[in-house]
């Protein structure tokens, strides 16, 4: 692959990623492949067994994954429209379920989803909590709030409160037991390369200082957390500046600690250092999910606890 032909910053980063990406050649090959579609069964409305029957009737061919309620859809099938409109399924990357699983949610908890739209993870949280508790789902932009509300309605969720606020400035009267900061990011984990033209697909363009926004969000999230509570910081990007560096910033500014978690799919540990920047040993407890290893969108997550 000629990395010189494309001017997007990703191609400059990519050469540096050889430093930490396992099987770099495998990653480059995988970049030219389409991601499979994954469907999460909404068990608030239908059991996994009944859904499999209904989806098969609706024309879907499914393959099970490491997460019992998530199935891979055969490439020859479209997302089944009736099952979708009845709220039986939510198309969601396999790796995007990881932050919710890492939260280890219990029914009755107070949960904040700081950057909630379009609502895939909010919906999964409600499902894990059996729609029992309160999930405050926040997002900044009205257009995204509308898609969030539409998805929560379709999935039949009753436990969510939707609010519109800049996450970095959000105030709330009570602390939360669990918080998800699924921060806006450059989305490199989703990037694909058109095999014919070499063009970068799904790439985010713009000059927003994402790292500064992410640092403000993680700090605000942590301040809203109950002592003893758990916060997950996640992104769908590979760049350490938006991942380990953001978590290291929080560890420097607040009395936060990373905790261990064992994901159900293959992951690599977070980076302790990158290109001369030291993030610290603790970052090794974070998880990196690489697209070519899990055949899904690349993800990063860190499980953070606020000591009592």
């Amino acid at each position: 692959m000629n990395l010189e032909t494309n001017t997007h910053p990703f191609f400059q980063h990519l050469e540096n990623y050889q430093e930490f990406l396992p099987d770099f050649r495998g990653y480059l090959t995988h970049l030219k492949e389409h991601f499979p579609t994954y469907l999460r069964i909404n068990t608030l409305k239908i059991s996994v067994e009944e859904a499999e029957k209904f989806l098969t009737r609706d024309g879907a061919i499914l393959r099970s994954t490491a997460v019992p309620e998530i199935f891979q859809l055969s490439p020859s099938c479209k997302v089944p429209s009736l099952s979708y409109h009845l709220g039986f399924i939510y198309p969601q990357a396999l790796t995007s379920a990881m932050p919710v699983l890492a939260m280890e949610l219990q029914g009755g908890e107070r949960v904040l989803d700081l950057c909630a739209a379009p609502g895939g993870k909010t919906g999964y949280m409600a499902q894990v909590m059996k729609d029992n508790g309160v999930i405050v789902a926040n997002d900044r932009k009205l257009g995204r709030i509308i898609s969030l509300m539409s998805n929560l309605k379709r999935l039949g969720i009753t436990s969510a409160v939707v609010i519109q606020s800049r996450g970095e400035q959000l105030t709330w009267s009570h602390p939360f037991d669990r918080i998800l900061v699924d921060a806006p990011c450059s989305g490199e984990g989703k990037y694909r390369i058109d095999a014919e033209t070499g063009r970068l697909l799904h790439a985010r363009r713009g000059r927003t200082n994402l790292s500064a926004i992410q640092k403000a969000l993680i700090q605000r999230g942590f301040d809203l957390l109950e002592p003893g509570g758990i916060m997950i910081y996640s992104t769908c990007t590979l760049t350490p500046e938006e991942n380990e560096e953001v978590v290291a910033h929080l560890l420097k500014k607040r009395k936060a600690a990373l905790v261990q978690w064992k994901p159900p799919v293959e992951s690599s540990p977070g980076l302790e250092e990158y290109r001369g920047k030291r993030y610290g040993k603790e970052l090794g407890l974070a998880h990196r999910f690489y697209p070519h290893k899990v055949n899904s969108v690349g993800f990063f997550l860190a499980k953070i606890v606020k000591p009592k």
């Binding site: 009755g108 107070r110 508790g133 309160v134 405050v136 926040n138 709030i145 509300m149 929560l152 309605k153 039949g156 969720i157 009753t158 436990s159 969510a160 409160v161 939707v162 609010i163 519109q164 606020s165 959000l170 009267s173 009570h174």
Partner: peptide, 16 residues
């Protein structure tokens, strides 16, 4: 299990 206020300027919707 807690109160939230409809008067909160950030409030958009609660429930189904």
């Amino acid at each position: 299990p807690e109160r939230f206020s409809y008067a909160d300027p950030h409030f958009v919707r609660a429930g189904l």
